[in-house]
Every structure is written in structure tokens, then in C-alpha cells.
Design a protein around this nucleic acid. Structure first.
Length: 111
DNA sequence: GTCCTGACAGGAA
DNA sequence: CTTCCTGCCAGGA
């Protein structure tokens, strides 16, 4: 693992921590923001180790607003619970009104 | 060293 | 609108 890789992972965590309460973003958006638009998968991979970090991984979903990473949380619907507790509506593992709740780290779009 | 896998994304059919 | 296929990059066997 190269130092650059460690930096990338660390950056991912930092960006994820910037996600506002009740907002969500995508792996690709984070990757693109870090200058690695082709490394969206690496963002998800980094999130795998986010358990030890203080990172709201539940606010990061794929571009369709689908909770693809819910299986990596303890419970079956823990990720959905966390989101709904923040006011985000989730139906069938999919975030409703995803486009409106989407938060681009580059744009930092306000609600 | 090769091969397989994965919390993705984008485009095509 | 949905489903399928390809490209990417890092890690583990």
C-alpha cells in the first residue's frame, strides 16, 4: 500500500465526515472530488474500514441512491434506520427524493 | 507473478 | 423505464 493510497483513504474519510446531517452522497462523487473519478470502488472499499473511523458511512450510497452497503452494517436494516432517523426516507433499500438529498462535496449544494 | 472479488459508474440495448 | 456489459483500481489467495 503506497503512501498515496493511504492519503486517498484518509481523504475519503475526511470528505465523508463533511456530509451534513440528513444529506447523502455517492461513492463516485467523493472519488471525483478527490481527483480519482475512476476509483469510485476504492471509496466503497475504504468505507469497509470505516467501522473503526468516525465516519457516517450510512450517508454514502451508490449513484442510484441504493443502499448497496447495508450488508456491511451490523443489523439488517441498521443503515436504513440511521438514515430515517436523520429524516431520510428509504423504501426498498432506495433513498426517496435522492436527487434532492444528494450532497456533492464539490458543489456542497445547500438544501 | 496471475486470477478473482468488490459498499461503483456510465453507456448501450 | 429496466437490464446488461465494460472499465477501473486495490487487496487477498
Amino acid at each position: 500500500m503506497t503512501p498515496e493510497t493511504l492519503n486517498f483513504f484518509d481523504k475519503v474519510y475526511q470528505v465523508a465526515q463533511q456530509i451534513p446531517y440528513g444529506r447523502v452522497t455517492s461513492y463516485g462523487a467523493i472519488a471525483k472530488y478527490l481527483g480519482a473519478p475512476r476509483s469510485a470502488r476504492m471509496v466503497g472499499y475504504a468505507m469497509n474500514n470505516s467501522s473503526e473511523k468516525n465516519v457516517p458511512a450510512h450517508r454514502v450510497v451508490n449513484r442510484k441512491g441504493l443502499l448497496t452497503g447495508k450488508h456491511h452494517f451490523d443489523g439488517t436494516n441498521l443503515m436504513q434506520q440511521l438514515l430515517e432517523s436523520e429524516g431520510v426516507t428509504v423504501v426498498n433499500n432506495q433513498i426517496q427524493d435522492f436527487k434532492n438529498l444528494f450532497w456533492d462535496p464539490a458543489e456542497k449544494t445547500p438544501l
